[in-house]
Design a protein around this nucleic acid. Structure first.
Length: 590
DNA sequence: GATTTCACGTA
DNA sequence: CGTACGTGAAATCC
């Protein structure tokens, strides 16, 4: 009997949990209550298309292995992602997550997984060693049981030693299922269980998207990228000598504006500070925002700031960057994570999240395709309205430009209203209060109380939870020093209020993104970039309009589920808006 | 050689 | 008008 039939007969239906483990070579195991199968990744795809269960995985690694085999499941429950939601922080290896679920003392967890690239080699060596030791007939006693008598996961399993026999792969899948069921029960019992479970699902499925983003990459035109670089730092040098000479030429442009006889290594902040002092500019450090006020009066400063721009491109986003990360297929690739350690935003490496704006013109759809660019408008104040349940602020979200009704309400102009709102959300350090600030308290007391509460808790070292249920740890670690001075205490308060807004915005964004991922697939649409409040979807040109509409529809649906409002005591419905357009190049947006 | 600091790109 | 992240080079630590 094939797997689809067997699972169907076993009663596995849409959305039901099914444990899934995949070995590096693409062999899979599927576990449901009371039964399990060893199979090929391609069978996982067939089951997904016909029965569409929610696959339970330990971490994004499973999705990465599936993506290599061309398998892209619709949904999952990722134990690591849900662990980060429930318990905060970044660490989420199986042994660590398991100990949390079982309520075991954390100092007893046997050995952490690899925490840095530097340890990867040791980790691999340990894996090989374990595999060599077990051998064809050398299974150690209890090797088939991943759980120790004391309740912790066995060290050889958490290190990856489960991959050597089909039975062990299956046991690992079964254990993931068990972990997920435990996590689900915990979430369902939390204060807003419905939202928490929904958040756990989107935070999980984002891990599938991350694996796909890493595998697919961002479409980029190498010739355009090289043109951009040529315009800023000159043509590609032919060798190290030429590169050094071009650097020297760029340096000379700045240094000839220095006082006679004075020179410096422009790459050394200490020497730059001395150089500036010799030119009559006395600054405590040489950061751009500090130098900005001297740009007009001192040509040396202006030249230095221009030099810094070019130097940034040359060192971080130059030809070496293209050579290293832009594939011969015209895709820029980096690793993606579904949630960072603080508020749970997505992160990406290799410059995907901090590419200079000038380079956007090189981000171009493939022939016959377009990019649908969608970015959320004024996401943070709208999120504040939703998570705090402030009826007056919720009413203001009806406007396309939220700051206009806020300005009217406060009796100030729009720029003042905007500054007052942002100061309230993130905590100002200068010019405390002010008239606009006092009026904010009067006009939006519920929202302000929400922020004040977050600020107080954070300063006191009490943990916070975002609207969707992510734990933001403020206790322990150096985030809450016993003898905090006033400045550090205030910084913790700002961190806390920011984490609740940024974190909730990230949760809404990810729920939107996984919805778009699912709905755009039949049109051939693929998300190719997530940038905190902005999505890029790569889609065949003939489906451009339909995809643009779909992205907007997905936002409306997601917002309605995420922040119901209207029919209950929460008050007015919060409106979320997105600017959506179809473009050939990312730079053409707006 | 590893870690910290400075600086700056993105949101 | 604050927070977050990732990166690279210099400075510093061990």
């Amino acid at each position: 009997m094939d797997l689809v039939t067997a699972l169907g007969q076993a009663g596995l239906g849409r959305g039901d949990l099914a444990g899934l483990a995949v070995t590096p070579d693409g062999t899979a195991a599927v576990a449901i209550a009371g039964a399990g199968w060893s199979t090929a990744a391609s069978e996982v795809a067939r089951v997904d298309e016909t029965l569409r269960p929610r696959w339970v995985t330990w971490s994004q690694e499973t999705a990465q292995r599936l993506a290599l085999a061309g398998v892209r499941p619709a949904t999952c429950w990722d134990v690591a992602a849900v662990h980060r939601l429930l318990f905060g922080g970044w660490r989420a290896d199986p042994g660590w997550a398991w100990a949390h679920l079982r309520g075991l003392p954390l100092d007893g967890v046997p050995v952490a997984g690899p925490q840095s690239a530097g340890e990867a080699d040791l980790f691999d060596a340990a894996q090989e060693h374990a595999a060599a030791q077990s051998g064809p007939s050398g299974a150690t006693p209890d090797a088939e049981h991943p759980v120790e008598p004391d309740g912790y996961l066995r060290q050889d399993w958490t290190r990856g030693g489960w991959e050597d026999t089909p039975d062990r792969v299956l046991a690992w899948a079964r254990l993931a299922l068990e972990a997920a069921q435990s996590q689900g029960a915990t979430l369902a019992g939390s204060s807003d269980g419905g939202l928490a479970v929904a958040t756990a699902r989107s935070e999980s499925t984002i891990e599938l998207l991350c694996a796909e983003l890493s595998a697919d990459g961002l479409p980029m035109d190498r010739a355009v990228a090289e043109q951009v670089l040529t315009g800023i730092i000159g043509p590609r040098p032919r060798g190290d000598a030429e590169a050094a000479q071009m650097r020297a030429v760029r340096d000379a442009v700045v240094l000839r504006l220095a006082p006679a006889g004075v020179t410096a290594d422009l790459r050394s902040p200490v020497q730059v500070r001395s150089l500036l002092a010799a030119a009559g500019v006395d600054v405590p450090d040489t950061r751009a925002w500090r130098l900005e006020e001297f740009r007009e009066s001192h040509p040396l400063v202006a030249a230095l700031l221009e030099w810094r721009k070019a130097e940034r491109i040359a060192t971080t986003y130059g030809y070496a960057w293209l050579d290293e990360h832009l594939g011969s297929d015209g895709r820029l690739r980096g690793a993606w994570t579904g949630s960072d350690g603080a508020a749970g935003r997505m992160t990406a490496s290799n410059g995907l999240h901090n590419m200079p704006a000038a380079m956007r013109q090189a981000v171009v759809a493939a022939p016959g395709h377009v990019l649908i660019r969608a970015d959320l408008g004024q996401i943070e104040p709208r999120v504040l309205a939703a998570v705090s349940g402030d009826p007056a602020l919720a009413a203001a979200t009806a406007a396309d430009d939220l700051y206009l009704p806020v300005a009217t309400q406060l009796g100030v102009d729009r720029p003042t209203a905007k500054v007052a709102m942002i100061a309230a959300m993130y905590g100002q350090t200068t010019g405390h209060g002010g008239q606009a600030g006092r009026r904010m308290r009067a006009a939006y007391p519920v929202a302000m109380a929400y922020l004040d509460s977050a600020d107080r808790s954070a300063r006191a070292g009490r943990d916070l939870r975002t609207y969707g249920g992510r734990l933001v740890r403020m206790s322990g670690g150096d985030r809450a020093p016993a003898q905090a001075d006033a400045a550090r205490t205030a910084a913790r308060g700002r961190y806390g209020r920011n984490a609740l807004i940024q974190g909730a915005a990230a949760e809404l964004f990810k729920m939107w993104a996984v919805t778009v991922r699912a709905r755009a697939l039949p049109l051939g649409g693929r998300i190719v970039l997530c940038l905190h409040d902005e999505l890029l979807v790569h889609v065949p040109r003939e489906h451009a309009d339909a995809t643009a509409r779909l992205v907007g529809d997905c936002l409306a649906e997601t917002a309605a589920r995420w922040s119901p409002g209207g029919q209950d005591a929460r008050g007015a419905r919060v409106r979320f808006i997105a600017d959506i357009c179809a473009v050939r190049s990312w730079a053409d947006a707006k």
